[in-house]
Amino acid sequence: MDIALTRQWVQAVAEAMDEHKDRLTQLDAAIGDADHGANMNRGFSAAVTALDTFEPESVGQLLTKVGNTLISSIGGASGPLYGSAFRAAGKALTTPEPDAAEFLAALRAGLAAIQAMGAAVLGDKTIVDAYAPALDAFAEELGAGGDLAHAAARAAKAADDGAHATIPLQARKGRASYLGPRSIGHQDPGATSTALIFEALAKVVNP
């Protein structure tokens, strides 16, 4: 993973959030407060703008910058959660241009930051339900000798499956938990935006 590719990833995420903002907002209207699409779109377009004038020396610096920008521009639950994830991923990287295994470790640090902050576990109907299976698939592919492109593709598929699998779940964290059993039957907006982030990664590393 190099700096140019990471930039493209952030750009692709911003495009995906713009394209899917209405869908994310509709998902959030059903079990939340109808702001997730606007939140993610605002955050990643701010990240792209911030990167325009930023010349990082490493992928880590770039990801940290993205994290800080998300924290400063999103608000809501997703701002601190996604922002801390990108920041933790950036800080976990020690080499300027990590290989696939190092990149996986950084993504793991991101998930750990989300769980440390929001205390969600698998099955709570949150970001974690897409993020955790994505990393499992990523690791499995690398373990089987696959490269970054294959690992990212499998992670994207697993994240998307994970997001779909939130439909029958009852939310135990965040706003949707206020609905109790009425949260069942709806796909979680945060898990859906996580799936978009992994899909964007797969797209840029596997053009």
Binding site: I71, I74, G75, P80
Partner: peptide
Amino acid sequence: PGEVFTSPVPD
């Protein structure tokens, strides 16, 4: 004040 129904940012 945050955006509509969205908490403000730490800054």
